[in-house]
Design a protein around this nucleic acid. Structure first.
Lengths: 215, 215
DNA sequence: GAATGAATTGAACGTTCGTTTTATTAATTC
DNA sequence: GAATTAATAAAACGAACGTTCAATTCATTC
């Protein structure tokens, strides 16, 4: 056989991307074979090479688009530059958690498969990551300068916050006892306390365990 | 040739473990080949099979011993059960960061290579991990019950703290601008604020950016 | 409805993988 | 110093890997 009835390049490419994200997130890039991926898509292995020249190209494409989407999401979610730092931090945390919970698989790939990239492509991804993290560092520094935050070390605090709020994808599973909104408010409250902003902006969001379980 | 002069099974096994931890941490379990590992040890691939029956057995051994060492380290570092919750939390954070900074490679392996384990071995490791994390949950719950902490959700807060303090191994490199002690104090201060214990126990550790850079 | 391009198959390439087997040498025991 | 055991080398196994190539069929254009 050859070309199949109803075949469509755009649909096939999208199916490859979707299947690849899920398989790589679950088993890792090295562990996923092109045959395995092709079988999941419902196609022969050779067909994959019409869309991605190599296995690594496929991985890089997924990671690159994910990082660009993350930065784009923040650009459209961040408040005006004259907003106060607490509002900016709130927007950052909220956007980050929502974005990552919506794309758990893609985030896993972007965070775990860096070592499968060639040197120059690794640098491309790390540069995008740094661009994003710099946004948080700016918020923290401005807030600290304005006396709104208590921060010992801006870079270290930024890393700590990002590790904490990205970690949600490790344990969160849909149909969990907590809704996405509850989780977001919870992480936000912790972040505001962590940065010393708790007293001025977070109390209204704080609820106790019992209320969470009841709701 | 065959047995080499001065060869010693104990030394060879230790060399295999050390090389395996480093290689797996850097490249991932799937990406490391037995030939590559053997070359690093300075031995032929077949020699590895005298010490570990399969590649997965080697990985599991490394992860299992690491998790048991982590739990043992906490058992010998945790204060008496009549100590207050802030002291217990302080001991937990301090022990965790020191332990992980001393074993960055092994921690990387234990955290990233879970998907290379068979189902029953995965369960063994996850069970040990749960044992460890339960210790933190107990501290948080006791402190919340005693009114020392402000915690919305014990399980979620425990996950957030562990993600945050384990994340130190991702960015920390020796000969960094911050010493291990400074990093530990910094994470401790953030954790105490995050749990709402900041006002009563952490101020004496807080220092500003400028002082860190100067020190 | 012939010509052209897009989409895919089927088969194969050389390479590398984890692992096994057998033989050989070094250390230890008696 | 012979017998035994521990430690390794050397070579090979079949299987699976990423990838390529030619052939073939579907869809579109004119």
């Amino acid at each position: 056989m050859a070309r199949t009835a109803g075949s469509d390049g755009n649909r096939t490419e999208a199916a490859i991307r979707d299947a690849a994200v899920e398989l790589i997130a679950r088993h890792g890039h090295e562990a996923v074979t092109m045959r395995q991926l092709a079988a999941r898509v419902g196609v022969q292995p050779a067909a994959l090479y019409r869309y991605f020249p190599t296995k690594e190209d496929l991985l890089f494409t997924l990671m690159h688009e994910h990082m660009q989407a993350l930065i784009a999401a923040w650009r459209s979610a961040c408040p005006n530059s004259d907003a106060d730092s607490i509002a900016a931090l709130t927007a950052f945390i909220t956007n980050h958690i929502r974005f990552h919970l919506e794309r758990r698989h893609a985030t896993h790939v972007s965070n775990m498969e860096l070592r499968s990239l060639s040197a120059d492509r690794l640098e491309t991804i790390l540069s995008l990551r740094n661009t994003y993290e710099t946004e948080l560092r700016h918020i923290l520094r401005q807030g600290a300068d304005a006396g709104l935050f208590v921060i010992e070390d801006t870079a270290l605090t930024a890393m700590a916050i990002i590790q904490m709020i990205t970690g949600v994808i490790v344990w969160f599973r849909p149909d969990e006892r907590l809704s996405v909104d509850e989780i977001t408010q919870n992480y936000l409250a912790m972040t505001l306390r962590l940065t010393g902003a708790g007293a001025s902006g977070s109390e209204k969001h704080v609820r106790q365990d019992a209320e969470f379980r009841a709701g």
